[in-house]
Design a protein around this nucleic acid. Structure first.
Length: 572
RNA sequence: CGGGGCGUAGCGCAGCCUGGUAGCGCACCUGCCUUGGGAGCAGGGGGUCGGAGGUUCGAAUCCUCUCGCCCCGACCA
């Protein structure tokens, strides 16, 4: 491809309101442009990258027997109503009416539609298992789009769905996907982790789910990792053991804590570390008020508590006053016998301080489960420095981008949509489903986050928009142009003979100064550059530059093609 | 949803406080010149100052409303 025939609007100066590195570089290097909040245009280079990723996705999906199909983006409401998600999802779903006033929505995901097809067409165990996938646009009215391409309202996703006759079959489909995902992310040159995750709105209670996470500072999610046993999990589900504390053997005693409401204020005033305090939080659950108890040095994890209570919210200051008859800041767990109490496991052993249910006072010597009844659950947020609940090792944490996920769905969608089949005994059974997603744009963004320098992007070989870039330094010099053009056509031909595929070569045929070409080439980030200038041509040589290392090799023109191809296979 | 910030030429910004003919750098167009890390000289084009309303002789500037975009948070007891 010729640079002069490609639309690559590079920018010297970046827009001031970008924060993520991947967003900055995608904009500056001319890969994408923003249309509105959470809506991105993929320009030629950006689209080439997505297609490179998609090629890898398709190859690996085909390897596990998945079949590519394509589903509509516009869905009738009834199908979503059947599974209950029309009502449970809320504002995140784009909804509209057609001209006849029929309720419709834009697809956020395709479990319902896939299960619908299966319900219509699959009748016998002999037709199972099936794995269907698509690379399709999804629409979600995100509360806050952010990080450029990382969280958008419209995005492309590779989503696949498995249908099995039994749990054993689902295990196999699930495992096949996990293996395919490892192959995909490795081919895309990413550093990533597979972690335990929250099935969230996809699965039912007790469902199995994993996420694939690419570590980068721009990540929205956080995971904890144990270097001892390899345990890794999203903090949304991560179990941990809090750092141990001494048993203080305090007698029950009220202490005067005037105007000291927050954990910080109380620890500062009493000179007692936060781990000896209990945060007592009043929540309003569907079944009424609930007190949630966690250790003072930890944070509540709302998703964990949601799994216990269902959708809950924090009580307002007025509700605290009317329900508990106390001022916020001095709530204690004792004495509220008629209110359900959920305590984190960390409070099982020890002796704590919490509010005295009386303005200006806290109480020492509290023992949850001894002085009053509580239900024990894991409701705290795991954090770096906690101990691993499996092996006791110390956990560390990392910011990550979620690049893929796999869910065991079971019968959550097949039952409501009537996706059933007859088994060998003529018995009707619901199909056992799984769903599996990957975000190609997030793969691209993660690659940039993990692989860049001050000059620009450094693409992993397999997802670069081009395999190499030829840079003729002076388009007015006939010899330069002649050698560049010859190399340009030769490389594409010869590579073709070796592998059956064309090498993607970009030649910068613009009549601009060398400095501009060097800067743009580094910014765009194609892994290999071939530099052709009068200086080295005098010695019958050209130069090959490896973008990642900056290493430059001068080679004789006759050796150029062979050297370039050899080097191409050396880089990752 | 809550809080904060910003909207002036394609990009980056100044001007606003203290009202009086809209500016700078880069980019763009033409010509000359130049060709190993975003050259130089000369000339040139481009902005209803996000939008609406108000105050005023006069508004980018002051006031009100509104739209858009970005960031932080969605918590604490």
């Amino acid at each position: 491809m010729r640079f002069t025939k490609l639309f690559i609007p590079t920018m010297r100066e970046a827009p001031s309101d970008v924060t993520a590195v991947c967003q900055l570089l995608m904009l500056r290097a001319g890969y994408v442009r923003q249309l509105a909040a959470g809506l991105y245009i993929f320009l030629p280079l950006g689209w080439r990258v997505l297609n490179k990723v998609n090629r890898v996705l398709k190859e690996e999906m085909e390897k596990i027997g998945a079949q590519e199909i394509s589903m509509p983006v516009l869905h009738p409401a009834e199908i979503w109503q059947k599974t209950g998600r029309w009502d449970s999802i809320g504002e995140e779903m784009f909804r509209l009416k057609d001209r006849n006033g029929r309720d419709m929505c834009l697809g956020m995901t395709h479990e319902e539609i896939m299960a619908w097809v299966a319900s219509k067409e699959i009748k016998s165990y002999k037709e199972l298992p099936q794995i269907w996938y698509q690379i399709q646009t999804k629409l979600r009215d995100e509360a806050r789009p952010r990080g450029g391409v990382l969280r958008t309202r419209e995005f492309i996703m590779k989503d696949s769905y498995s249908f099995d006759a039994d749990e054993e079959g689902l295990d196999i489909s699930y495992q096949l996907h996990a293996e395919a995902y490892h192959a995909i992310f490795q081919r895309c040159g990413l550093k990533y982790y597979q972690v335990d995750s929250d099935p969230g709105m996809m699965g039912g209670a007790g469902a199995t789910a994993h996420e694939f996470m690419a570590p980068t500072p721009a990540g929205e999610d956080e995971i904890v990792l144990c270097s001892g046993c390899g345990y890794t999990a999203n903090v949304e589900v991560a179990r941990s053991v809090a750092s141990p504390i001494d048993n203080m053997n305090w007698e029950i005693e009220e202490v005067f804590t005037p105007e000291k409401r927050t954990i910080n204020e109380v620890t500062g005033f009493l000179k007692i570390p936060a781990q000896y305090l209990i945060k007592t939080l009043l929540m309003i659950s569907p079944d009424g008020p609930v007190l949630a108890l966690i250790r003072g040095d930890h944070d509540l994890h709302e998703k964990k508590l949601t799994r216990v209570l269902g959708e809950f919210r924090h009580a307002t200051k007025d509700e605290i006053r009317s329900i508990l008859n106390i001022e916020a800041g001095f709530i204690g767990p004792m004495g509220h016998d008629n209110i359900r109490k959920i305590a984190d496991f960390t409070l099982k052993d020890g002796n704590f301080i919490s509010g005295a249910n009386k303005s200006g006072y806290h109480i020492k010597g509290i023992k949850p489960g001894v002085q009053f009844d509580v239900e024990w659950y894991d409701i705290q947020t795991a954090k770096a420095g906690d101990s691993c609940f499996k092996c006791g090792g110390i956990l560390r944490s990392e910011k990550v981008i979620e690049i893929g996920n796999i869910f065991k769905l079971g019968t959550k969608y097949s039952i409501p949509l009537g996706a059933v089949f007859l088994d060998k005994n003529g018995q009707e059974n619901p199909m056992i489903m799984g769903s599996y997603g990957i975000g190609p744009a997030r793969i691209a963004a993660s690659a940039i986050e993990q692989s860049n320098d001050k000059d620009g992007i450094i693409w992993p070989r397999n997802i670069s928009p081009f395999d190499l870039q030829i840079i003729p330094l002076n388009m007015s010099d006939p010899k330069t142009v002649e050698e560049s053009e010859e190399l340009y056509s030769k490389l594409r031909e010869i590579y073709n003979h070796l592998t059956g595929e064309a090498m993607d070569v970009l030649i910068d045929d613009r009549d601009v100064r060398p400095g501009v070409k060097f800067k743009d080439a580094d910014l765009i980030g194609i892994p290999l550059q071939v530099i052709i200038g009068e200086k080295t041509l005098k010695n019958n040589q050209i130069e090959i530059k490896v973008r990642r290392s900056g290493e430059v090799r001068k080679v004789a023109i006759e050796e150029a093609v062979r050297e370039i191809i050899a080097l191409y296979y050396e880089i990752r």
